[in-house]
Design a protein around this nucleic acid. Structure first.
Length: 416
DNA sequence: GCTTGTAAACAGA
DNA sequence: TCTGTTTACAAGC
């Protein structure tokens, strides 16, 4: 993967931008260019918000300075369609009409089997009298303060191209020159209708919006995407609620449910993706419990990861616990922020592994999804049912309005 | 030590 | 074969 970047052109072509920007400068600019709602979802088959509902995130409040757009906007402004290896079909006419100060993003982007106009294509065009984007030049970028509790915002000097940090170490200038995968995934999902995409569409987004995918034989970045999706989904186990989640939805009658990766409403609202390190650390903590030294990359057949997954799979699919837990999660979100209700429409079969595979022990309760309050009450190390969260659940769809499902496991006359 | 990227093994669809 | 999960390790900070 590291080899492909050599063909990329230089990127730091933005004039007149300061090497450092203040967050307030960026926030001021950002507040002027609220994303526009995408209204063209040709062929898009899964639910979305009502047409008259605002889709974009709107102006960014000052307190949400951790918006990963701070990475993404600057990053993508330098990833030209050519660099991204995007095909002409993937690029709209706007690709050739970029603002002189704004190397334009490609639009509309065409997913493998879906066409979709990115909302930010228009919104990223600055008003004629607007100040230049402080992020139009990413000679440096600042990591959001919210990205990683123990990692304060750091200024990172970028390289002359934007390729993933490579462990091959063949070019130090490549390192830290692009947003983390989690941020890129966040952006891909954030721009998608319903804030959800299939894995293949995430791949496509990366191909079109990053310099990945130039080498069709390079699959490491796809592995990294999957890894990040899983890792950030797992953080949900701890009810941080900042991350991605997998949801299965039927795309048509009689068709097999497909898996979508979705931003949690809390992630959308906060604009932050938490580090996966806490989870990884827990894995390390578990290490002595299962085995001694293991080979660098090979898992033993009964290693903890594989074994854990077996357990998860055996009790995840169609488990009443799963549905209840998902509904509980959804209701928690909605209760915390009713404006997010449309984000949590009905989901046919959520992927609930993260709830059922809690590596520490069963969750016996938790506090509401309040930012800053991620308390989870844990039981013991013993496996067992983690949830008993009978609720009635409301949701809203443009087609049917408000709906309510009654939990069949809940006794009559009992209400939540 | 934390964070991130990457490779790889593995299970299941 | 693809997808999702997990582990392990390397590297930068």
């Amino acid at each position: 993967m590291s080899g492909q970047a050599d063909s990329k052109p230089g990127l730091l072509s933005q004039p007149q931008a300061p090497s450092q920007i203040s967050l307030s400068d960026w926030a001021r600019w950002r507040s002027q260019v609220a994303p526009m709602p995408p209204r063209q979802y040709e062929g898009y088959s899964f639910p979305r918000v009502a047409d008259d509902e605002p889709y974009g995130l709107g102006p960014l409040p000052q307190e949400l300075l951790g918006d990963p757009n701070a990475y993404i906007d600057g990053y993508r402004s330098h990833v030209t369609p050519t660099m991204a290896g995007a095909t002409s079909e993937m690029l709209g006419s706007q690709a050739a009409e970029g603002h002189s100060d704004w190397p334009l993003l490609q639009s509309p982007f065409v997913f493998k089997d879906q066409s979709y106009n990115y909302p930010q294509m228009e919104s990223l065009q600055p008003p004629p009298d607007s100040p230049p984007s402080p992020l139009s030049d990413v000679s440096s970028y600042q990591s959001p303060p919210s990205f990683g509790a123990s990692s304060p915002g750091v200024t990172v000097q970028t390289a002359d191209r934007f390729s993933p940090r490579s462990t091959t170490g063949d070019n130090n200038q490549e390192r830290h020159s692009h947003p983390p995968y989690s941020m890129l995934i966040y952006q891909a999902l954030k721009e998608a209708p319903g804030h959800k995409l299939q894995l293949q569409n995430i791949y496509s987004w990366f191909e079109a919006n990053t310099d990945k995918g130039g080498d069709p034989n390079a699959k490491g970045w796809q592995n990294s995407i999957r890894h990040n999706l899983s890792m950030n989904a797992i953080t949900l186990t701890f009810h941080t609620s900042f991350g991605f989640e997998a949801v299965k939805e039927e795309v048509g009658p009689g068709k097999r449910a497909v898996n979508f990766w979705r931003l949690t409403p809390e992630t959308i609202r906060s604009g932050s993706i938490q580090s996966t390190t806490r989870y990884r650390k827990l894995q390390h903590h578990k290490k002595p419990l299962y085995s001694g030294h293991r080979g660098a990359t090979r898992q033993q057949p009964e290693s903890k990861g594989v074994h854990a997954m077996k357990v998860v799979k055996s009790r995840s699919a169609n488990s009443p616990h799963n549905e209840r837990a998902e509904a509980y999660h959804r209701q928690q979100m909605i209760d915390t922020n009713p404006s997010l209700e449309h984000e949590y429409g009905p989901t046919i079969l959520p992927a609930m592994q993260r709830y059922m595979q809690h590596p520490v022990g069963p969750v016996v309760g938790c506090t509401p999804m309040i930012p800053g309050n991620n308390t989870v009450f844990l039981d013991t190390m013993e496996p067992g049912p983690a949830f008993d969260v009978g609720h009635n659940h409301d949701w809203y769809t443009p087609e049917s309005g408000f709906n309510r499902v009654h939990d069949p496991l809940e006794g009559p006359g009992r209400s939540s």
